[in-house]
Design a protein around this nucleic acid. Structure first.
Lengths: 204, 204
DNA sequence: TAATCCACTTAACAGTGTCAAGTGGACCGA
DNA sequence: TCGGTCCACTTGACACTGTTAAGTGGATTA
């Protein structure tokens, strides 16, 4: 019993907005076609006129999450020396995870049913390239060892930081004696610096 | 219309067996009370006489997964020097993830709804202690830097290896030029060794 | 033999994703 | 202004899901 016709794309945005609200408030289990529809004031099947499936809708949310992550990583001072910049990016990634547990869990699900959307992969690549550029610049400037394959090292860097963030978000890291939550992250960042640093750095 | 009475615990084991079969064949979405029940030849509600909920049942499966992981890690030669042993454990963890993607995804879900079962946490601690012991022995033997907090370092080690395994299992690692999948793992293990090694190791 | 027990079943509720068919207001040409 | 077309949205339904309340019937006990 619709009275006024919405502008094209308007309803789609409203559906996404409501889905985001539900997800951030109650996790993935709080998101359902009927609940979204009720919040928007529309029937449940209307959603399927704008999204192929609920999974497709969640993919759109996932992309939003990558956008949020990009703002965290993009906020790192671009003028920092390579090693300091990489440290800062590690802290930013970690902070993103802790401050946005919902987004993080949505973006990095452990159960991979379908291949991710092409667009999502592109966004992921984009943020990874932010890291890669720092590694490359570090190599060019002589701050980082030259014997590393840039892309392999970048992947390894990402995996390390992602690992500590994922385990922390999941609450799986065994509490350490001092209870200082960031100790693991900082220790890892120290290790990363030792690993990446060019061997003769101190002599120059 | 049951004709013969099962021995106590027998049916519970059969339910778990069927759930495991369904899960390993089709992932978490293939597991449902009715499907398990049908496979066992029993009504769906019978499951609730043996498990408090489907989540509870999945927790039991989760524990099995920790058991499988423990066999991988326990299979690492105990007589290896500390650094070599840690390398081997990293490879074993990674191999476990790739050869048992289903178990891995079940054991380390990104969405944490309820706190994990106490028993599951204990198993996780157990496997983590296998790693911790190697670190401690390495410190005692002078192979590993003494200025590290053992538990913090162990957590950091686990997080790093977990990170590369999780991203690989999820298919998220960006392909490297040479396409050698293990390159990232091996590069990371090199970095770990550099990080952990006692500074004067080469002089002794 | 009669009573009790309890492992299991049946029936149902409320929720889920999703599709086929219908409806009605907005638009467009005559 | 009338008739027709279009299509955004709704209704109703199907096949699932987890979970609970009540019933049943064979085995065990008194």
């Amino acid at each position: 019993m619709r009275t006024t016709r919405r502008g094209a794309g308007d309803l789609k945005a409203a559906i996404l907005r409501q889905a985001r609200r539900l997800y951030l408030a109650g996790g993935i289990e709080a998101v359902s076609a009927r609940k979204i529809a009720q919040g928007v004031g529309v029937s449940a099947t209307t959603i399927y006129l704008h999204f192929r499936s609920i999974d497709d809708l969640l993919d759109h949310l996932r992309m939003e999450g990558h956008g949020v992550l990009a703002t965290y990583l993009g906020g790192v001072d671009a003028t920092l020396p390579a090693l300091d910049g990489i440290r800062a990016m590690g802290r930013a990634y970690h902070r993103f995870g802790l401050e946005n547990r919902g987004w993080f869990a949505l973006m990095f699900p452990s159960h991979v049913t379908a291949p991710p959307r092409r667009e999502a992969v592109q966004r992921e690549m984009f943020t990874l390239m932010l890291l890669r550029d720092r590694v490359q610049r570090g190599i060019d400037a002589g701050d980082i060892r030259r014997d590393l394959d840039v892309m392999v090292a970048t992947n390894a860097l990402w995996a390390q930081i992602h690992g500590v963030t994922a385990l922390t978000v999941a609450g799986l890291l065994v509490q350490t004696a001092d209870g200082h939550a960031d100790a693991v992250l900082e220790t890892m960042l120290d290790g990363i610096e030792r690993w990446l640093a060019a061997p003769d750095e101190e002599h120059r």
